[in-house]
């Protein structure tokens, strides 16, 4: 495994999507067929950058497993599969575990405010690659957001254009500026990407005005429903840190299709008075 492990470690460090296929089980007897079974622990690595490395001991099995590993890479799910010794799909001579190592999901936060600092921390705990973007250079500094992977001084829509092609359903955009001047271009640009979560901070009143402006900017009513605003779950969050937990919990819940109450689908004040 040594050489393969070194390659795997390098791919993971470079954030290059990589799958490692390992023989984890094999039958002792091959029924009347004169074939050699792969060794337990034999590995095959498949990555976009380095291609196919290693072998499970049989060319045909390698080809079939490499194909399945490519499929697993696009689904993002690690999976165990059964094969014949030459890669036959209906036999069960060997079990191969295809372990998928996807690069971290991305969170892009627009607005360099206090809530941003707390959200960066919670997002890092959850394993996100976090970018903070704000057009105001006195706020968007690495010093204010030391845990962020990137701090970008620029307009939200301009920044999103540079990364749009890399964004997928695993990624999240959080708009915390609550200033229409920045919110509207950020949301319009985010709606044109494939991000799985788009949330916007602000009161219900702020959001009503925002909806009006987004409609004027040409956003269709159906698309407005994709915006989680007010952002976060209705857990009575108060501080920036609690709000960050409410936002991240909402991202998890939306991904998992869990039925929990979002502030968006709630009524009444966002900040409740403790009794």
């Amino acid at each position: 495994m040594d050489e393969i492990f070194t390659t795997l470690a390098q791919c993971i460090r470079d954030e290059d999507p990589v799958a490692l296929a390992t023989v984890i089980e094999r039958t002792d007897v091959v029924r009347g067929r004169n074939t050699l079974l792969p060794q337990l622990g034999a590995t095959l690595l498949v990555s976009q950058a380095v291609g196919v490395r290693g072998s499970l001991g049989h060319d045909k099995l390698d080809a079939v497993v490499a194909g399945d590993a490519t499929g697993a890479l696009s689904s993002g799910q690690s999976v165990a599969r059964h094969y014949g010794s030459a890669g036959e799909s209906r036999l069960n001579d060997v079990t191969v575990f295809i372990d998928v190592f996807a690069p971290p999901p991305r969170m892009i936060i627009f607005g360099a405010v206090d809530f941003t600092a707390a959200l960066v921390k919670v997002a890092k705990v959850l394993g996100y690659h976090v970018t903070v973007c704000d057009a105001r250079e006195i706020f968007a500094t690495k010093k204010r957001f030391p845990e962020a992977d990137e701090v970008i001084v620029g307009w939200p829509d301009a920044y999103l254009m540079t990364v749009a092609g890399r964004l997928s359903a695993r990624d999240a955009v959080c708009v915390l500026t609550h200033d229409h001047k920045f919110d509207i271009p950020a949301i319009v640009a985010a709606l044109s990407t494939k991000v799985g979560y788009l949330g916007a901070m602000g009161s219900r009143t702020t959001h009503l005005e925002r909806v009006k402006r987004l409609t004027e900017a040409g956003v269709a009513p159906a698309r407005l429903n994709e915006i989680m605003a007010p952002i976060g779950l209705a857990i009575g969050a108060r501080t920036p840190e609690e709000t960050a937990v409410a936002i991240c919990a909402e991202i998890i819940a939306r991904r998992a299709n869990a039925e929990v109450r979002s502030l968006r689908d709630d009524t009444g004040p966002i900040h409740r008075v403790a009794s």
């Binding site: 690690s78 165990a80 575990f97 372990d99």
Partner: peptide
Amino acid sequence: ARVVAVVGAGPRDPG
């Protein structure tokens, strides 16, 4: 050591 399969309720996913 890696989790390679989970049947029923399990605390961690494969991988």
